[in-house]
Nucleic acid binder design. Structure first.
Length: 564
RNA sequence: GCGCCUGUAGCUCAGUUGGAUAGAGCAUCUGCCUUCUAAGCAGGUUGUCGGGAGUUCGAAUCUCUCCAGGCGCGCCA
């Protein structure tokens, strides 16, 4: 546990004890102690930490909050808490002012832990799977997939950092109706390519990338597929196109900094009987009935709005059936927690997916589905409707080429998944130098630059001997140093909160705050000071900051440049 | 019509799970490079938190209602 966490925990514990002894002394009456929340107030004038316990107890105690606060403060034991001063303020806040000396412990803690600073074991090694992007292999990756990739990958890294055993997975939708559709589209493009006047299916995939795919194939096989059975022709076309599309997707995501542990094929669930098996299981449990020739899952038993078809009247299982088998497979693989990142357009599936898991006897709470709102693309001031079928979208590749991997990833991960982000491509391109990501990266480069400078001074510099065992109390004299230290100290708590809430965007915000405090410090105090002891202490502070920022950027999948 | 999400500064967005005087970045204005990277810093300007009602010591946050936008409501995925 980090210094800061320990500190907060001790004060919280003592506050609880104080409430207990006040009750025992008959000064305060309450039956149930509310959850004690300690937080850093926005206003510095309100101290380092503030508790609202007195206000929460006021009703039960039948006393004005400020009086409750007085009783609590009277029994509060400050020993071993770093608390220097307590005041009761406002409607009944208990404000704690800390001895800044506690901050001196932050630097050695960060230096000692290095790349692990901020990490924790709170995940207790639980197995977590994060499934994200899982785009249909019928086209190119687009902006929405980019958002999912940035979010999913950062979340996975964050959870790993918080002590979970994480697996990243991509579900390949290589079966079902859309593949049929894909086949028809390919067939039309193939024949068109060879000069036949055939219509393009209306519901087909209009993207021009399919034309490219087919052109490549024609280069290899020519017109060999023209005079064969259409079924075979489509099968061969799909086989070729699928592997090409998949390898494009894999490459694109890799260029975006995302590496998966598992690529899971939907088709395998059809082939190995998993789908039939899970349907039988649901049937045995009585959750399936027949109506109008189709098989339905009684998902309304589990809170869904309506029942859902699992096997069509033509005998072909639906996507939903495959998805049930897939998620059962996930739990069978031993994951304690399964996280899916879906676009908001799939939110209707959440209830029935969870319902299906419940029907199979799994705890639906262990399946967490994160919905992210769609990306609205603005170009020349107009909203561009993106659709894979229409073939109109900005691809991930274009995004990386024109905006850059780091800027694009940071842009997405900076935002709450619930916000519908507007992405103005022209703006992103033109303002790329002013993108917030550079603010953070620049801080990192600056930190590296200072450390380089110190190294260049070499062994002649007696200060290097003082490093790593410096007198860190020397850092407590200016507000800009204290605030930087404070932020560094908070990092482990921030990781904890973000991991618990599955909100990687908190980490990105933290990066901006930290970079800002560092830049302020940099302009306020000289690191390479004449005084050797001070210089050594500040160099250690710089290194601790660099470590922290580096750890953050690693979670976000953004590179940490040493020079800019 | 029903369900989910969103509405915060001119623009893009945060807001610590109900806390004290609502914050950043961009834009704009004023200063700061003979010393560690000016992709930086310091300061100024910018608000009916979509409207209204309620819950309570206290609401951007919770409830209800209305308005506006997005997305769903297939034997598609």
């Amino acid at each position: 546990m980090s210094i800061y966490e320990q500190l907060k925990q001790r004060i919280t514990a003592n506050l609880i004890t104080a409430a207990g002894s006040a009750r025992q002394a008959g000064e305060l009456s309450f039956s149930e102690l509310p959850n004690v929340v300690l937080e850093a107030p926005r206003e510095k004038a309100h101290g380092d930490l503030a508790a609202n316990l007195a206000m929460l107890l006021a009703r039960q105690a039948k006393m004005p909050p400020r009086l409750v606060a007085e009783k609590l403060v009277g029994k509060f034991e400050t020993e071993g808490t770093w608390v220097k001063e307590i005041e009761i303020a406002g409607p009944g806040f208990i404000n704690f002012r800390l001895d800044p000396a506690w901050l001196a412990q932050v630097v050695p803690e960060a230096l000692e832990q290095g790349a692990l600073y901020g990490s924790s074991a709170s995940g207790r090694g639980q197995k977590v799977q994060v499934e994200f992007v899982s785009a249909n292999p019928t086209g190119l990756l687009h902006m929405g997939n980019a958002r999912g990739a940035a979010l999913g990958d950062s979340l996975a890294s964050l959870l790993a950092f918080a002590g979970y055993e994480v697996s990243r997975e991509f579900y390949i939708n290589d079966a079902g109706n859309q593949i049929e559709n894909f086949a028809k589209s390919l067939e039309a493009r193939y024949l068109q390519q060879l000069g036949f006047d055939v219509p393009f299916p209306e519901e087909g995939y209009h993207g021009l990338d399919l034309v490219e795919t087919v052109k490549k194939l024609v280069g290899q096989v020519g017109d060999k597929y023209v005079n064969i059975a259409p079924e075979l022709r489509r099968e061969l076309l799909v086989k070729y196109a699928l592997q090409e599309k998949l390898s494009d997707i894999r490459q694109g995501l890799q260029d975006f900094g995302v590496e998966y542990d598992v690529w899971f094929s939907e088709q395998t669930l059809h082939d190995d009987g998993s789908i039939q098996q899970v349907l039988q299981e649901l049937k045995d449990k009585g959750y399936i009935y027949e109506k109008e020739g189709a098989l339905w899952l009684r998902s309304t038993d589990f809170g869904d709005e309506k029942d859902e078809v699992v096997v069509r009247s033509n005998g072909v299982p639906t996507y939903f059936a495959a998805d049930i088998a897939y998620h059962k497979n996930k739990f069978q693989r031993g994951f304690d927690k399964v996280i899916n990142i879906w676009g908001a357009d799939h939110h209707g599936h959440v209830a029935r997916m969870k319902g299906a898991m419940k029907a199979l006897g799994y705890d639906p709470d262990n399946l967490q589905i994160l919905l992210m709102q769609l990306v609205r693309l603005i170009q020349q001031g107009e909203i561009v409707r993106m659709s894979k079928r229409s073939g109109q979208y900005i691809t991930l590749k274009e995004l990386i080429d024109e905006v850059g991997k780091d800027a694009a990833r940071f842009f997405f991960v900076l935002r709450d998944p619930d916000s519908t982000v507007e992405f103005d491509l022209d703006l992103a391109k033109s303002e790329s130098a002013e993108n917030p990501v550079y603010y953070v990266q620049y801080a990192h480069a600056r930190l590296c630059s200072i450390l380089r400078k110190a190294d260049e001074a070499g062994d002649a510099d007696a200060c290097s001997k003082l490093r790593r065992s410096s007198d860190y109390s020397l850092l407590l004299n200016s507000p800009s140093e204290r605030e930087l230290l404070h932020k560094l100290g908070e990092f482990p708590s921030e990781v904890e909160t973000a991991a618990q809430l599955l909100e990687p965007h908190r980490i990105a915000r933290f990066a901006l705050d930290l970079a800002s405090l560092f830049h302020t410090f940099y302009n306020d105090q000289r690191v390479l000071a004449d005084d050797l002891a001070l210089r050594a202490a500040r160099l250690d502070l710089i290194e601790a900051t660099k470590i922290t920022l580096g750890n953050i950027l690693a979670i976000l999948g953004v590179s940490a440049p040493e020079r800019m």
